[in-house]
Amino acid sequence: MRRLGDGVEAAMHCALVLAGLPDGVVIPGRDLAALYDLSESYLLKHLRALTAAGVTEATSGPRGGYRLARKAADVTMLDIVEAIDGPGPAFVCKEIRQCGPVASKDPCAFRKSCLIRVRMLQAEKLWRDSLRGQTLADLARDAAPMIDDTTKRALAAYVDAVKR
């Protein structure tokens, strides 16, 4: 199984910030990168992936920036994961049970699917279903009581200073 790319975390946090913007307001990518002390080129790659997936919209020009393309209640955590890491399975079975000195040479021995593959794909389905059931609106609601007032004020001031 592969681990999620670091871009997923960055994309989730940026999408959450964008979810709090008023209609018609955008934040430049460089300011989103600065907010989390990320390389601008690194974050812009992920913001472009979110835009290609229809999660965010990008506006160009001196007043350009990013905003959500849909309401926060219509963007799932899975939408963001798949935009950044792709929709493919996390676990890929290489059928190593068919290799090595003790593997059966009888092709009939491998008619049934590898049980490890089956269980891993079952677990992945549960994980994806869970992410599909959680939206940015859910995250924003659940995160609000966990963020201290000082941080909330600092974030609001930062967004107010950089929004367009």
Score class of each variant (00 low, 15 high):
39 S>H: 05
40 E>W: 02
41 S>Q: 07
42 Y>S: 07
43 L>S: 00
47 L>F: 03
47 L>A: 04
49 A>Y: 12
49 A>Q: 15
49 A>K: 14
52 A>K: 04
54 G>Q: 08
55 V>S: 02
58 A>H: 13
61 G>N: 06
62 P>E: 15
64 G>Y: 05
64 G>R: 03
66 Y>A: 00
68 L>A: 05
72 A>V: 05
73 A>G: 11
73 A>E: 15
74 D>A: 05
74 D>H: 11
74 D>M: 03
75 V>F: 07
76 T>L: 09
78 L>P: 04
79 D>V: 02
79 D>W: 00
81 V>Q: 08
82 E>Q: 10
83 A>I: 03
84 I>A: 00
85 D>T: 01
85 D>I: 02
86 G>Q: 09
87 P>A: 15
88 G>H: 12
91 F>I: 10
91 F>W: 13
95 E>F: 01
96 I>W: 03
97 R>A: 02
99 C>I: 00
99 C>Q: 09
99 C>F: 03
100 G>K: 00
105 K>E: 11
106 D>M: 01
107 P>E: 07
110 F>N: 04
111 R>F: 10
113 S>F: 10
113 S>A: 13
114 C>V: 06
116 I>D: 11
117 R>P: 03
120 M>C: 12
120 M>G: 01
120 M>L: 09
120 M>F: 10
122 Q>P: 01
123 A>Y: 04
126 L>S: 13
127 W>G: 03
127 W>L: 10
128 R>P: 05
131 L>S: 00
132 R>N: 07
133 G>Y: 02
134 Q>K: 06
136 L>V: 09
137 A>P: 11
137 A>Q: 12
137 A>F: 06
138 D>Q: 09
140 A>M: 13
142 D>T: 06
142 D>G: 07
143 A>F: 12
149 D>N: 10
150 T>S: 12
150 T>R: 14
151 T>V: 13
153 R>V: 10
